[in-house]
C-alpha cells in the first residue's frame, strides 16, 4: 500500500470506531422501542430484543389512553413547522426584496433595527413574549407557536445580502419592458433567490419542528402539544418512565426529520455552510 492509501485506510478504521458512538445510541432507541419494559430495564448488554413486541406502539396508538395523542402531536408539529416555514419564506423574501431594491420609507432605520435586533439574544424576549401571548389569551394555540417566528431577521438578512450582490440588470430590463413590481418579484427575484430561499426554509423547518423551550412553556393542553413537548413531558412528567414507550414515541417523533434528512441531506449541509459564511 502506498503512503496515501495507508493513511486513508487507517483514517477509515478510526472513523468507523467513532461512528459507533453516533450509531449505537440510534440503534438502541429503535430496538428498545420493541422491548417489553421488563426487558428494557433488565440491564446488561442485551441489544437485540428477546422477542419483538409492538405493545409500546399499540399503547401509544390506543384511543383509550388519554396521556398520549401521538398522531395529534405529530400533526401539530407538522402543521406548525410547515405553516411557519411558508410564512417566514413569504414574509422574509418580500421584505428583503423591498429593502434591497425598492424605495422603502425609513429604509436606513429599518435596516439599523434589524442589525441591532440580531445582537439581542432570545432570552431577553422570552418572558415578555410569554406574558403578551398569555394576556392575549393565545396560550395553547397554533398562533403562539407560529407567530413569533415571523419576527426572525435571519432570513431577511440572508436574502438581503444575496440580492445586494445579485446583478440588477435583468430586473432593470424587465422594468423597461413594463413589468410590474409584483411581476418582477415573482418571476425574476424569487426564482433567482431559490438557493437562499431553500436554505431559509430548511433552517426554519428544522428549528420549528425541534423547537423545545417555547412550546414547552406556552403549551400545556394535551391536544395542542407538539411531539417534541410530548416526548419531553413523558420523560419528566411521570415518576416511573416506561423506556419502551418513551423510545417508541421518540422513534415516531423522529420519523419526519429522518425522512427530511434522507431526502435532503446534501441541501441541509449546503444550507449550514450558507449560514456560517455570510
Amino acid at each position: 500500500m502506498s503512503y496515501y492509501k495507508r493513511k486513508r485506510f487507517y483514517a477509515t478504521i478510526f472513523a468507523t470506531i467513532i461512528a459507533l458512538f453516533f450509531v449505537v445510541p440510534a440503534i438502541w432507541i429503535i430496538l428498545t422501542a420493541f422491548k417489553t419494559d421488563a426487558e428494557a430495564l433488565r440491564g446488561g448488554v442485551n441489544f437485540w430484543p428477546d422477542h419483538f413486541t409492538f405493545k409500546n406502539f399499540m399503547y401509544l396508538f390506543s384511543s383509550e389512553n388519554y396521556e398520549v395523542a401521538v398522531f395529534r402531536w405529530l400533526g401539530n408539529s407538522l402543521f406548525v413547522s410547515v405553516v411557519g416555514t411558508v410564512l417566514v419564506i413569504i414574509i422574509d423574501t418580500m421584505a428583503a426584496f423591498a429593502l434591497a431594491r425598492l424605495n422603502v420609507p425609513f429604509k436606513k432605520i429599518i435596516l439599523g433595527l434589524i442589525l441591532i435586533s440580531m445582537l439581542i439574544p432570545n432570552v431577553i424576549t422570552l418572558l415578555p413574549q410569554f406574558l403578551n401571548f398569555a394576556n392575549a389569551g393565545l396560550l395553547n394555540t397554533y398562533g403562539v407557536m407560529i407567530l413569533p417566528v415571523t419576527s426572525s431577521t435571519f432570513g431577511v438578512f440572508l436574502l438581503y445580502q444575496f440580492l445586494k450582490k445579485f446583478p440588477v440588470e435583468i430586473e432593470e430590463s424587465a422594468v423597461l419592458d413594463g413589468a410590474s413590481t409584483w411581476k418582477i418579484f415573482l418571476h425574476i427575484v424569487v426564482p433567482n433567490s431559490k438557493p437562499m430561499i431553500v436554505t431559509l426554509g430548511i433552517i426554519t423547518f428544522i428549528g420549528l419542528y425541534n423547537d423545545f423551550l417555547w412550546p414547552l412553556i406556552t403549551i400545556n393542553q394535551n391536544s395542542m402539544k407538539t411531539i417534541t413537548v410530548g416526548v419531553a413531558n413523558m420523560m419528566t412528567g411521570s415518576l416511573s418512565i416506561s423506556y419502551g414507550r418513551l423510545m417508541a414515541l421518540s422513534l415516531l417523533s423522529s420519523i419526519p426529520m429522518i425522512i427530511v434528512f434522507i431526502i435532503s441531506q446534501k441541501q441541509i449541509v449546503k444550507s449550514i455552510t450558507h449560514t456560517g459564511i455570510k
Partner: peptide, 20 residues
C-alpha cells in the same frame, strides 16, 4: 413598496421590538 415590507414590520414590531 411599503406593502412588500409591511408583513415583516408587523411581525418584527409585535414579536421582537415590543417584547424587548
Amino acid at each position: 413598496s411599503f406593502l412588500f415590507i409591511l408583513p415583516f414590520l408587523l411581525g418584527f414590531t409585535l414579536f421582537c421590538i415590543i417584547p424587548i
